[in-house]
């Protein structure tokens, strides 16, 4: 499998014109729920595909961590998007987004328990059975822990990845956020993760708010996160890194600056 490579950026309709103007770009990610596989793709994505840019569908509402089985219609949609984009892989989160008939509107953490591992593994397997391409799983950022964790983060993730054979989508900003809000040493966590399974890496900005670090995707990437990227890439360099920006978009020069900083920190070629 040839997965994504180099420095990429999350494709959003709001910045489609900016993304289209990045000469060295080789991969982007698109929110899977924003694409309708039955309808023509957005012009911007068609153009990128025409240039040979990989487009990775990134699901945010599958709720793989939900106690109940994943909704087959959502899985079918994700598979359809992957096929429509001729994607090398798809990604989703180790999280749940709804329960008891209510939408959380957000990715929520799971208890790090055997029961939760079993629930995630069952849902990931159901999903993998329908997907035409490999699935990468992304650990999320959370502000709080469940009261009855049986495993630590590294063991929790490794067990899920081992049981499913899924790839890892490592979000460095989430690692930073979790360490900042829930304690722990980010570098030590990175050391214990199965980094050889990293398909690509997420990098995003955030901000301090009310005593917590919020992974907002609407603020600049903090220096501490770039330091973690540098540390990660000094060891086993991941094949690809992706900048996620979801709102409060800055002037083009600033966005280019963030992509350049990511290229410099990772040692990948500059895409701007």
């Amino acid at each position: 499998m040839t997965g994504p490579s180099g420095v990429g950026i999350g494709w959003r309709p709001e910045i489609a014109g900016f993304v289209a103007g990045l000469p060295g770009l080789r991969f982007v990610e698109v929110v899977a729920e924003a694409v309708a596989p039955a309808r023509p793709l957005p012009d911007g994505l068609t153009e990128l595909r025409g240039r040979g840019v990989d487009v990775v569908p990134h699901g945010v509402r599958l709720s793989l961590g939900g106690a109940e089985p994943v909704d087959p219609a959502r899985v079918a949609h994700l598979a359809g998007v992957a096929a429509a984009l001729d994607a090398p892989l798809v990604s989703e989160h180790i999280a749940f987004v709804r329960a008891g008939g209510l939408e959380a509107g957000h990715l929520l953490p799971l208890p790090r328990s055997r029961e939760a591992v079993a629930a995630v593994v069952a849902n990931v397997r159901r999903t993998q059975a329908e997907l035409p391409v490999p699935l990468a799983l992304e650990p999320i950022a959370a502000l709080f822990d469940w009261p009855d964790d049986e495993l630590d983060e590294a063991d929790f993730l490794t067990e899920i990845l081992d049981a499913t054979g899924a790839l890892l989508l490592l979000d460095v900003a989430n690692v930073h956020a979790n360490a900042r809000n829930r304690g722990g040493d980010p570098a030590a966590l990175l050391d214990r993760l199965p980094l050889e399974r990293v398909a690509y890496v997420h990098v995003a900005g955030g901000a301090e708010h009310g005593g917590f670090y919020h992974d907002t995707h609407t603020d600049p990437v903090p220096a501490a996160v770039l330091d973690l990227v540098r540390e990660l890439c000094a060891g086993r360099r991941p094949p690809a890194l992706l900048l996620e920006r979801d709102g409060h978009y800055p002037p083009a020069a600033e966005l280019r600056g963030e992509l350049d900083a990511l290229a410099a920190a990772s040692g990948h070629p500059v895409v701007t």
């Binding site: 950022a141 979000d171 919020h214 907002t216 609407t218 996620e244």
Partner: peptide, 8 residues
């Protein structure tokens, strides 16, 4: 007021 944390 914007972007209250994405966590993804």
């Amino acid at each position: 007021g914007c972007g209250g944390g994405c966590g993804g």
